[in-house]
Nucleic acid binder design. Structure first.
Length: 423
DNA sequence: TCTGGGGTCCTAGGACCC
DNA sequence: TCTGGGGTCCTAGGACCC
Protein backbone atom coordinates (compact mmCIF):
# COMPACT_ATOMS: atom_id res chain seq x y z
CA UNK A 1 0.00 0.00 0.00
CA UNK A 2 1.42 3.45 -0.88
CA UNK A 3 2.22 5.63 2.08
CA UNK A 4 1.28 9.11 3.12
CA UNK A 5 2.81 11.75 5.31
CA UNK A 6 1.19 13.59 8.15
CA UNK A 7 2.57 16.73 9.73
CA UNK A 8 1.64 17.34 13.33
CA UNK A 9 2.23 20.91 14.51
CA UNK A 10 1.53 22.32 17.97
CA UNK A 11 -0.68 25.40 17.78
CA UNK A 12 1.09 28.60 18.86
CA UNK A 13 3.34 26.27 20.82
CA UNK A 14 5.15 28.59 23.23
CA UNK A 15 1.92 30.41 24.05
CA UNK A 16 0.16 27.08 24.60
CA UNK A 17 2.91 26.06 27.06
CA UNK A 18 2.49 29.29 29.02
CA UNK A 19 -1.28 28.85 29.04
CA UNK A 20 -1.18 25.30 30.32
CA UNK A 21 0.35 26.43 33.61
CA UNK A 22 -1.52 29.69 33.77
CA UNK A 23 -5.17 29.10 32.84
CA UNK A 24 -5.91 32.80 33.36
CA UNK A 25 -4.27 33.34 29.97
CA UNK A 26 -6.99 31.42 28.09
CA UNK A 27 -8.76 33.66 25.55
CA UNK A 28 -6.34 36.50 26.35
CA UNK A 29 -3.95 37.92 23.76
CA UNK A 30 -0.52 36.49 24.65
CA UNK A 31 2.92 36.83 23.05
CA UNK A 32 6.30 35.26 23.77
CA UNK A 33 9.57 37.12 23.13
CA UNK A 34 12.86 35.82 21.74
CA UNK A 35 16.00 35.71 23.85
CA UNK A 36 17.06 39.07 25.27
CA UNK A 37 13.37 40.08 25.04
CA UNK A 38 14.17 41.14 21.48
CA UNK A 39 11.41 40.09 19.09
CA UNK A 40 7.96 38.54 19.06
CA UNK A 41 8.36 34.83 18.27
CA UNK A 42 4.98 33.39 19.27
CA UNK A 43 1.48 34.82 19.31
CA UNK A 44 -1.89 33.56 20.45
CA UNK A 45 -4.72 33.76 17.90
CA UNK A 46 -6.05 36.79 19.79
CA UNK A 47 -2.68 38.53 19.44
CA UNK A 48 -2.53 37.65 15.72
CA UNK A 49 -5.99 39.19 15.31
CA UNK A 50 -4.68 42.46 16.78
CA UNK A 51 -2.22 42.68 13.90
CA UNK A 52 0.91 41.90 15.93
CA UNK A 53 3.45 40.54 13.48
CA UNK A 54 5.84 37.62 13.80
CA UNK A 55 9.44 38.75 14.29
CA UNK A 56 8.47 42.31 15.18
CA UNK A 57 10.98 43.97 17.56
CA UNK A 58 9.46 44.22 21.03
CA UNK A 59 10.39 47.85 21.62
CA UNK A 60 8.56 48.85 18.43
CA UNK A 61 5.23 47.24 19.27
CA UNK A 62 5.37 47.78 23.03
CA UNK A 63 2.85 50.66 22.96
CA UNK A 64 0.39 48.53 20.99
CA UNK A 65 0.87 45.59 23.36
CA UNK A 66 0.26 47.80 26.38
CA UNK A 67 -2.77 49.42 24.81
CA UNK A 68 -4.45 46.06 24.24
CA UNK A 69 -3.16 44.65 27.54
CA UNK A 70 -1.40 41.81 25.76
CA UNK A 71 0.29 39.41 28.20
CA UNK A 72 4.01 39.32 27.39
CA UNK A 73 6.47 36.54 28.32
CA UNK A 74 10.22 36.14 27.93
CA UNK A 75 11.02 32.79 26.36
CA UNK A 76 11.36 29.88 28.77
CA UNK A 77 13.12 27.16 26.81
CA UNK A 78 13.42 24.81 29.75
CA UNK A 79 9.62 24.72 29.91
CA UNK A 80 9.03 24.50 26.15
CA UNK A 81 11.66 21.79 25.69
CA UNK A 82 10.11 19.68 28.42
CA UNK A 83 6.57 20.13 27.09
CA UNK A 84 7.80 19.24 23.61
CA UNK A 85 9.21 15.98 24.92
CA UNK A 86 5.87 15.11 26.49
CA UNK A 87 4.04 15.71 23.22
CA UNK A 88 6.56 13.63 21.24
CA UNK A 89 6.39 10.80 23.78
CA UNK A 90 2.62 10.55 23.45
CA UNK A 91 2.89 10.64 19.66
CA UNK A 92 5.61 7.98 19.69
CA UNK A 93 3.31 5.72 21.68
CA UNK A 94 0.46 6.19 19.18
CA UNK A 95 2.42 5.95 15.92
CA UNK A 96 5.39 3.73 15.00
CA UNK A 97 6.98 5.87 12.26
CA UNK A 98 7.66 9.36 13.58
CA UNK A 99 10.30 11.98 12.71
CA UNK A 100 10.62 14.73 15.32
CA UNK A 101 11.27 17.67 13.02
CA UNK A 102 11.45 20.60 15.43
CA UNK A 103 10.47 21.58 18.95
CA UNK A 104 6.80 21.76 17.91
CA UNK A 105 6.50 19.62 14.78
CA UNK A 106 6.68 15.98 13.80
CA UNK A 107 6.22 14.11 10.54
CA UNK A 108 4.47 10.73 10.60
CA UNK A 109 4.38 8.06 7.90
CA UNK A 110 1.06 6.30 7.47
CA UNK A 111 -0.43 3.74 5.12
CA UNK A 112 -2.60 5.49 2.52
CA UNK A 113 -5.98 4.43 3.78
CA UNK A 114 -9.17 6.27 2.91
CA UNK A 115 -9.89 9.84 3.86
CA UNK A 116 -12.42 8.93 6.52
CA UNK A 117 -10.10 6.64 8.44
CA UNK A 118 -7.32 9.27 8.24
CA UNK A 119 -9.65 11.87 9.65
CA UNK A 120 -10.61 9.55 12.51
CA UNK A 121 -6.96 8.81 13.23
CA UNK A 122 -6.04 12.49 13.19
CA UNK A 123 -8.86 13.38 15.51
CA UNK A 124 -7.85 10.64 17.90
CA UNK A 125 -4.17 11.72 17.97
CA UNK A 126 -5.23 15.32 18.55
CA UNK A 127 -7.54 14.38 21.39
CA UNK A 128 -5.01 12.15 23.13
CA UNK A 129 -2.23 14.75 22.99
CA UNK A 130 -4.56 17.46 24.23
CA UNK A 131 -5.77 15.30 27.10
CA UNK A 132 -2.36 14.04 28.19
CA UNK A 133 -0.22 17.16 27.71
CA UNK A 134 -2.65 20.08 27.49
CA UNK A 135 -1.20 21.16 24.13
CA UNK A 136 -3.53 21.73 21.14
CA UNK A 137 -2.17 20.43 17.83
CA UNK A 138 -3.17 20.44 14.15
CA UNK A 139 -2.58 17.63 11.67
CA UNK A 140 -2.27 17.72 7.88
CA UNK A 141 -2.17 14.64 5.62
CA UNK A 142 -0.73 14.48 2.09
CA UNK A 143 1.39 12.33 -0.27
CA UNK A 144 4.56 14.39 0.39
CA UNK A 145 6.08 16.36 3.26
CA UNK A 146 5.81 19.65 1.38
CA UNK A 147 2.10 19.10 0.70
CA UNK A 148 1.55 17.92 4.30
CA UNK A 149 2.96 21.26 5.44
CA UNK A 150 0.36 23.06 3.33
CA UNK A 151 -2.41 20.72 4.50
CA UNK A 152 -1.45 21.45 8.08
CA UNK A 153 -1.73 25.15 7.47
CA UNK A 154 -5.24 24.63 6.19
CA UNK A 155 -6.11 22.54 9.26
CA UNK A 156 -5.04 25.46 11.45
CA UNK A 157 -6.55 28.24 9.41
CA UNK A 158 -10.03 26.93 8.78
CA UNK A 159 -11.61 25.97 12.09
CA UNK A 160 -14.39 24.00 10.37
CA UNK A 161 -11.90 21.22 9.65
CA UNK A 162 -11.52 20.57 13.37
CA UNK A 163 -7.72 20.73 13.28
CA UNK A 164 -7.35 17.87 10.78
CA UNK A 165 -7.07 18.31 7.01
CA UNK A 166 -6.08 15.99 4.17
CA UNK A 167 -4.70 17.06 0.81
CA UNK A 168 -5.21 13.75 -0.94
CA UNK A 169 -4.78 12.63 -4.56
CA UNK A 170 -8.53 12.27 -5.01
CA UNK A 171 -8.94 16.01 -4.31
CA UNK A 172 -8.31 18.85 -6.72
CA UNK A 173 -4.83 19.72 -5.49
CA UNK A 174 -4.33 22.02 -8.51
CA UNK A 175 -7.05 24.44 -7.44
CA UNK A 176 -5.67 24.41 -3.92
CA UNK A 177 -2.13 25.22 -5.07
CA UNK A 178 -3.34 28.13 -7.21
CA UNK A 179 -4.45 29.86 -4.01
CA UNK A 180 -1.05 29.63 -2.36
CA UNK A 181 1.83 32.02 -2.95
CA UNK A 182 5.10 30.41 -4.05
CA UNK A 183 6.82 32.04 -1.08
CA UNK A 184 4.52 30.25 1.35
CA UNK A 185 5.81 26.83 0.27
CA UNK A 186 8.17 25.01 2.66
CA UNK A 187 11.74 25.58 1.43
CA UNK A 188 11.00 28.75 -0.54
CA UNK A 189 12.30 31.72 1.42
CA UNK A 190 12.06 35.39 0.56
CA UNK A 191 15.14 35.37 -1.73
CA UNK A 192 13.90 32.47 -3.78
CA UNK A 193 10.37 33.90 -3.88
CA UNK A 194 11.81 37.09 -5.40
CA UNK A 195 13.73 35.16 -8.05
CA UNK A 196 10.61 33.14 -8.85
CA UNK A 197 8.41 36.23 -9.11
CA UNK A 198 10.90 37.83 -11.50
CA UNK A 199 10.42 34.75 -13.67
CA UNK A 200 6.64 35.03 -13.32
CA UNK A 201 6.30 32.08 -10.99
CA UNK A 202 3.92 33.39 -8.35
CA UNK A 203 1.83 30.56 -6.96
CA UNK A 204 2.58 27.10 -5.61
CA UNK A 205 0.85 25.81 -8.74
CA UNK A 206 3.23 27.80 -11.02
CA UNK A 207 6.14 26.36 -9.07
CA UNK A 208 4.83 22.80 -9.44
CA UNK A 209 4.94 23.28 -13.23
CA UNK A 210 8.18 25.25 -13.53
CA UNK A 211 10.96 24.39 -15.98
CA UNK A 212 13.25 21.91 -14.25
CA UNK A 213 16.48 23.16 -15.83
CA UNK A 214 15.73 26.76 -14.94
CA UNK A 215 14.88 25.74 -11.37
CA UNK A 216 18.06 23.69 -10.97
CA UNK A 217 20.17 26.60 -12.16
CA UNK A 218 18.46 29.26 -10.05
CA UNK A 219 17.25 27.48 -6.91
CA UNK A 220 19.63 24.50 -6.91
CA UNK A 221 18.58 20.89 -6.54
CA UNK A 222 16.44 21.69 -3.49
CA UNK A 223 14.16 23.84 -5.66
CA UNK A 224 13.71 20.94 -8.08
CA UNK A 225 12.82 18.60 -5.23
CA UNK A 226 10.25 21.08 -3.95
CA UNK A 227 8.69 21.18 -7.42
CA UNK A 228 8.31 17.39 -7.48
CA UNK A 229 6.94 17.35 -3.96
CA UNK A 230 4.24 19.80 -5.02
CA UNK A 231 3.34 17.38 -7.84
CA UNK A 232 2.87 14.68 -5.23
CA UNK A 233 6.17 12.91 -5.92
CA UNK A 234 7.96 12.39 -2.62
CA UNK A 235 11.63 13.53 -2.52
CA UNK A 236 12.11 14.13 1.21
CA UNK A 237 11.95 10.82 3.07
CA UNK A 238 10.95 10.34 6.68
CA UNK A 239 14.07 10.49 8.85
CA UNK A 240 13.31 8.58 11.99
CA UNK A 241 16.91 8.42 13.21
CA UNK A 242 18.24 11.86 14.08
CA UNK A 243 21.47 12.49 12.16
CA UNK A 244 24.58 13.07 14.26
CA UNK A 245 25.24 16.77 14.79
CA UNK A 246 28.02 18.52 12.90
CA UNK A 247 28.21 21.59 15.08
CA UNK A 248 26.93 23.02 18.32
CA UNK A 249 26.75 26.70 19.26
CA UNK A 250 26.07 29.09 22.09
CA UNK A 251 25.69 32.83 21.72
CA UNK A 252 23.63 35.65 23.22
CA UNK A 253 23.09 39.29 22.54
CA UNK A 254 24.17 41.44 25.48
CA UNK A 255 21.55 42.95 27.76
CA UNK A 256 23.67 46.10 27.98
CA UNK A 257 26.33 47.30 25.53
CA UNK A 258 29.83 45.91 26.08
CA UNK A 259 32.93 47.99 25.34
CA UNK A 260 35.68 46.30 27.31
CA UNK A 261 37.70 43.19 26.81
CA UNK A 262 37.17 42.09 30.44
CA UNK A 263 33.40 41.95 30.15
CA UNK A 264 33.59 40.38 26.71
CA UNK A 265 35.88 37.70 28.11
CA UNK A 266 33.43 36.89 30.91
CA UNK A 267 30.61 36.47 28.41
CA UNK A 268 32.75 34.36 26.08
CA UNK A 269 33.77 32.09 28.98
CA UNK A 270 30.11 31.71 30.02
CA UNK A 271 29.03 30.65 26.53
CA UNK A 272 32.00 28.33 26.08
CA UNK A 273 31.08 26.70 29.40
CA UNK A 274 27.49 26.23 28.27
CA UNK A 275 28.58 24.83 24.91
CA UNK A 276 30.96 22.40 26.63
CA UNK A 277 28.13 21.26 28.91
CA UNK A 278 25.93 20.57 25.89
CA UNK A 279 28.81 18.69 24.31
CA UNK A 280 29.21 16.41 27.33
CA UNK A 281 25.45 15.93 27.69
CA UNK A 282 25.43 14.56 24.13
CA UNK A 283 28.57 12.49 24.74
CA UNK A 284 30.55 14.34 22.08
CA UNK A 285 33.95 15.96 21.73
CA UNK A 286 34.84 18.92 19.51
CA UNK A 287 37.85 19.15 17.23
CA UNK A 288 37.38 22.77 16.31
CA UNK A 289 36.35 25.99 18.05
CA UNK A 290 35.13 29.21 16.45
CA UNK A 291 34.69 32.45 18.35
CA UNK A 292 32.93 35.40 16.79
CA UNK A 293 31.89 38.85 17.92
CA UNK A 294 29.87 41.64 16.38
CA UNK A 295 28.62 45.16 16.94
CA UNK A 296 24.90 45.97 16.55
CA UNK A 297 24.19 45.98 12.82
CA UNK A 298 21.03 48.04 13.31
CA UNK A 299 23.00 50.90 14.87
CA UNK A 300 24.20 52.35 11.58
CA UNK A 301 25.18 55.50 13.47
CA UNK A 302 27.92 53.55 15.26
CA UNK A 303 31.14 52.13 13.79
CA UNK A 304 30.65 48.49 12.76
CA UNK A 305 32.93 45.53 13.32
CA UNK A 306 32.38 41.79 13.06
CA UNK A 307 34.99 39.08 12.95
CA UNK A 308 35.66 35.46 13.80
CA UNK A 309 38.57 33.09 14.50
CA UNK A 310 38.59 29.35 14.17
CA UNK A 311 41.16 27.09 15.82
CA UNK A 312 41.74 23.37 15.47
CA UNK A 313 42.18 21.83 18.90
CA UNK A 314 45.36 19.82 19.46
CA UNK A 315 43.17 16.93 20.56
CA UNK A 316 39.34 16.70 20.37
CA UNK A 317 37.91 17.59 23.76
CA UNK A 318 34.82 18.41 25.83
CA UNK A 319 36.87 19.88 28.66
CA UNK A 320 35.59 23.33 29.61
CA UNK A 321 39.01 24.52 30.79
CA UNK A 322 40.76 23.68 27.54
CA UNK A 323 38.04 25.28 25.46
CA UNK A 324 38.14 28.41 27.64
CA UNK A 325 41.88 28.79 27.00
CA UNK A 326 41.45 28.47 23.24
CA UNK A 327 38.51 30.88 23.21
CA UNK A 328 40.53 33.38 25.26
CA UNK A 329 43.31 33.30 22.65
CA UNK A 330 40.83 33.85 19.84
CA UNK A 331 39.23 36.73 21.70
CA UNK A 332 42.57 38.49 22.23
CA UNK A 333 43.19 38.42 18.50
CA UNK A 334 39.68 39.50 17.61
CA UNK A 335 38.97 42.25 20.10
CA UNK A 336 39.38 45.87 18.96
CA UNK A 337 39.05 48.85 21.26
CA UNK A 338 36.59 51.58 20.42
CA UNK A 339 33.53 49.58 19.43
CA UNK A 340 30.22 49.01 21.16
CA UNK A 341 29.72 45.26 20.98
CA UNK A 342 26.35 43.55 20.82
CA UNK A 343 27.16 39.87 20.78
CA UNK A 344 29.77 37.20 21.22
CA UNK A 345 29.33 33.54 20.35
CA UNK A 346 31.11 30.23 20.19
CA UNK A 347 30.66 27.38 17.71
CA UNK A 348 32.10 23.92 18.33
CA UNK A 349 32.54 21.77 15.22
CA UNK A 350 34.29 18.62 13.96
CA UNK A 351 32.20 16.81 16.56
CA UNK A 352 32.82 13.15 17.22
CA UNK A 353 31.58 10.61 19.78
CA UNK A 354 33.55 10.82 23.04
CA UNK A 355 34.57 7.15 22.92
CA UNK A 356 36.43 7.59 19.62
CA UNK A 357 39.75 8.51 21.10
CA UNK A 358 42.57 9.63 18.87
CA UNK A 359 45.71 9.78 20.99
CA UNK A 360 48.14 12.65 20.57
CA UNK A 361 51.82 11.98 21.12
CA UNK A 362 52.33 15.35 22.78
CA UNK A 363 49.21 15.49 24.93
CA UNK A 364 48.88 13.27 27.97
CA UNK A 365 45.24 12.92 29.00
CA UNK A 366 44.65 13.20 32.72
CA UNK A 367 42.48 10.38 34.07
CA UNK A 368 41.04 12.73 36.67
CA UNK A 369 39.63 15.31 34.27
CA UNK A 370 36.64 13.20 33.22
CA UNK A 371 35.71 12.49 36.82
CA UNK A 372 35.98 16.17 37.66
CA UNK A 373 33.80 17.22 34.72
CA UNK A 374 31.21 14.58 35.55
CA UNK A 375 31.05 15.88 39.11
CA UNK A 376 30.67 19.44 37.83
CA UNK A 377 27.77 18.44 35.56
CA UNK A 378 26.06 16.42 38.27
CA UNK A 379 26.23 19.27 40.76
CA UNK A 380 24.85 21.79 38.27
CA UNK A 381 22.09 19.40 37.26
CA UNK A 382 21.08 18.77 40.87
CA UNK A 383 21.44 22.28 42.29
CA UNK A 384 20.77 24.45 39.27
CA UNK A 385 22.74 26.11 36.46
CA UNK A 386 26.04 27.71 37.42
CA UNK A 387 26.01 26.45 41.00
CA UNK A 388 29.63 25.68 40.12
CA UNK A 389 31.16 27.86 37.43
CA UNK A 390 34.58 29.02 36.30
CA UNK A 391 35.52 32.25 38.08
CA UNK A 392 36.50 33.80 34.75
CA UNK A 393 32.83 33.72 33.69
CA UNK A 394 32.34 36.57 36.16
CA UNK A 395 29.79 37.02 38.93
CA UNK A 396 28.04 40.34 38.39
CA UNK A 397 27.39 39.67 34.68
CA UNK A 398 26.29 43.19 33.76
CA UNK A 399 26.21 42.04 30.15
CA UNK A 400 23.71 39.26 30.86
CA UNK A 401 20.80 39.12 28.42
CA UNK A 402 17.46 40.56 29.45
CA UNK A 403 14.76 38.16 30.52
CA UNK A 404 12.38 40.33 32.44
CA UNK A 405 9.14 38.48 31.98
CA UNK A 406 10.01 34.82 32.30
CA UNK A 407 7.49 32.37 33.72
CA UNK A 408 8.75 29.78 36.23
CA UNK A 409 10.42 26.56 35.03
CA UNK A 410 7.39 24.67 36.29
CA UNK A 411 8.46 21.24 35.15
CA UNK A 412 12.26 21.30 35.32
CA UNK A 413 13.17 23.01 38.59
CA UNK A 414 12.19 21.78 42.05
CA UNK A 415 12.21 25.33 43.30
CA UNK A 416 9.73 26.49 40.69
CA UNK A 417 7.07 23.80 40.85
CA UNK A 418 3.55 25.14 40.40
CA UNK A 419 1.72 25.60 43.69
CA UNK A 420 -1.85 24.37 44.04
CA UNK A 421 -4.00 25.91 46.75
CA UNK A 422 -7.32 24.56 48.02
CA UNK A 423 -9.82 27.05 49.42
C1' DT B 1 17.64 52.56 25.19
C1' DC B 2 15.54 48.65 22.89
C1' DT B 3 15.98 44.27 16.58
C1' DG B 4 16.99 35.98 18.84
C1' DG B 5 19.44 31.64 18.56
C1' DG B 6 20.69 27.21 16.67
C1' DG B 7 21.07 24.38 13.00
C1' DT B 8 21.28 22.33 7.94
C1' DC B 9 22.23 21.95 2.98
C1' DC B 10 24.07 23.47 -1.49
C1' DT B 11 27.29 25.62 -4.69
C1' DA B 12 31.13 28.03 -6.72
C1' DG B 13 35.68 28.56 -6.81
C1' DG B 14 40.33 27.91 -5.27
C1' DA B 15 44.08 24.74 -4.02
C1' DC B 16 46.22 20.79 -4.97
C1' DC B 17 47.56 16.52 -7.22
C1' DC B 18 49.05 13.66 -11.02
C1' DT C 1 51.69 34.26 -30.87
C1' DC C 2 50.73 29.80 -28.97
C1' DT C 3 52.17 26.73 -21.99
C1' DG C 4 46.81 20.69 -20.33
C1' DG C 5 43.15 18.46 -18.31
C1' DG C 6 40.66 16.08 -15.05
C1' DG C 7 39.68 14.87 -10.55
C1' DT C 8 39.14 15.66 -5.43
C1' DC C 9 38.92 18.22 -1.34
C1' DC C 10 38.02 22.24 1.32
C1' DT C 11 35.89 26.55 2.49
C1' DA C 12 33.14 30.67 2.46
C1' DG C 13 28.95 32.41 1.59
C1' DG C 14 24.14 32.12 0.59
C1' DA C 15 19.72 30.44 1.61
C1' DC C 16 16.58 28.10 4.28
C1' DC C 17 14.17 26.20 8.47
C1' DC C 18 11.89 26.62 13.24
Amino acid sequence: MPSLFALLDCNNFYVSCERFFNPGLADQPVVVLSNNDGCIIARSNEAKALGIRMGEPYFKCKPLLEYYRVRVFSSNYALYGDMSQRVMEVLGRLEPEVEVYSIDEAFIRLPATGEESLRRLGTEIRGTIRRETGIPVSIGFAPTKTLAKLANRMAKKQVEHGGVFGLLPEHDITAFLKDIGAGEVWGIGSRSAQKLAAHNIRTAYDLSRADERWLKKNLSITGVRTMYELQGISCFPLEEMPQPKHSLACSRSFGAPVRELGEMHEAAVSYVSRAAEKLRAQRLKAGCLTLYLTTNRFRTDQPQYANSRTVSLPCPTADTAELIIQAGRCLKELFREGYVYQKVGVVLSDLLPEHLHQANLFVTPSPHRDTLLQALDRINLRWGKDTLQYASAGFSKQWHHRQERKSPSYTTSWRELPVVRAF
